[in-house]
Simulated scan of single mutants.
Amino acid sequence: MLTITTSSLDAEWILFPHSGGVGPGASAPYNPAVTTSISPADRILGCLIGGAVGDALGFQVEFQSWPQIEREFGPAGVTELRRNRISDDTQMTLFTAEGLLEAVEGEEVASVRRAYLRWYKTQNEYLPPMGAKGLAAQPWLYDRRAPGNACLSGLRQGGEGRVNPDSKGCGTVMRSAPFGLLHSPTDAYELAEQCSAITHGHPTAGSSAGAFAMITAHLLRGETVQKAVSHAMLHLRRTLDRSETIDALQAAYELAGNVPPGPNTCERLGQGWVAEEALAIAVYCLLGTGDVRGALTASVSHDGDSDSTGAILGNLLGAAYGHAALPPEWASQVEGRETIAGLAETIGQAQG
């Protein structure tokens, strides 16, 4: 069994026998400069557009079984973006970013809650109301795209306190990349964990959202994918409490070292409906291959919550390798690209 230890972070290492290149599975020799030379602006844009691309790829087949996907797209899985529509995953990610950008220091959770309540209104109205500003003024965001029940019920209650205490759905993870784009790794973890409770009160939902935000923050700073994931795993191990999230990430790490990601190869990690499974599937595809297109295809070609696992992986790939690494025909046509790119630019300016 592969176990991550503190000493693992002391050097560049690759633990995957079938791997090489800038990420596992790539064909070129491993070269840290390939990732460290990418600009923060390209990583931010890549993270947000990549998440939308993965979301749109997966939204085409959400709720379908692998046999159904295979019949529709073929044995290679979802290799085409036939419909460019994003789901609630990208919608909520954008509102997370807007809430953080509007926040006064120390009031981030309250600001994100207000942003989520604005998103909730878009799910119950047909068009922006008079005087709407920001994302709430964008008519294309008013389409209801299979939002999660816990997100809706939690916000229906106002998002106060730890609502839905038994819910650990992946709705907290898929929206949490912006914490890593605007905050340090540790702060990103803490804020994502706290904001998870606005809709999902289960501790695993919080730790999974926090781990995702922390990995994103490390990638934004030029860490390799292996180190970024290891940092998050070590952070989760800071106490002796048993963690479903660390167990899921450990399983993803081990699978990535033995089975290259492909259509339905993530089956043993679950279906992605719950937080730790969605994160594990995305991390497995991130670590298991440096082929961005192949990773995205693998992340959505399975039974389960394909749009969420695709969105999470797309965020991570974009933060790791930048916008330029995304398949251009997908990145250029994804729904809402202009709005998403504008928000990415604002985040870059907020970073200084």
Rank of each mutant, 00 (worst) to 15 (best):
E223V: 01
K133C: 12
A228Q: 05
E254G: 02
Y142C: 08
L135E: 01
S167C: 12
A132C: 11
A211R: 12
L249A: 08
S176E: 05
M214C: 03
M233Q: 10
L234M: 03
L236M: 01
D247Q: 15
D241N: 07
L182R: 10
R145F: 03
H202G: 02
I198L: 14
C170N: 15
A228G: 08
G257C: 06
F212L: 06
L249I: 09
D187M: 14
H231R: 07
D166C: 15
G210R: 05
T199E: 13
G148C: 13
G201T: 06
L182I: 13
G134L: 11
Y189R: 07
T199G: 06
G171V: 15
G171W: 07
G161V: 01
I198H: 01
A136N: 13
A217S: 14
G180D: 08
G201Y: 04
G210I: 00
G201P: 10
E267C: 12
E190T: 09
P178K: 14
A136F: 13
R221S: 11
G148S: 13
L240C: 05
S184P: 00
S184L: 02
L191D: 01
A248N: 00
G180F: 05
G134N: 02
G206P: 02
A150M: 09
D166L: 11
S196L: 06
R175Q: 06
M174N: 08
R238E: 08
I215E: 00
G161A: 05
A205S: 11
E160C: 05
K133H: 09
V225K: 00
S243T: 03
R144K: 15
A150H: 08
Q194R: 14
G201L: 09
G134H: 04
L249V: 12
I215Q: 00
T204V: 10
A213W: 00
L181V: 09
W140K: 04
C266V: 06
R238V: 08
R242Q: 14
S176G: 02
A192T: 07
T239Y: 08
Y142P: 03
T265P: 02
L182M: 15
G206C: 09
P165T: 07
E193Y: 12
K133E: 15
N264H: 14
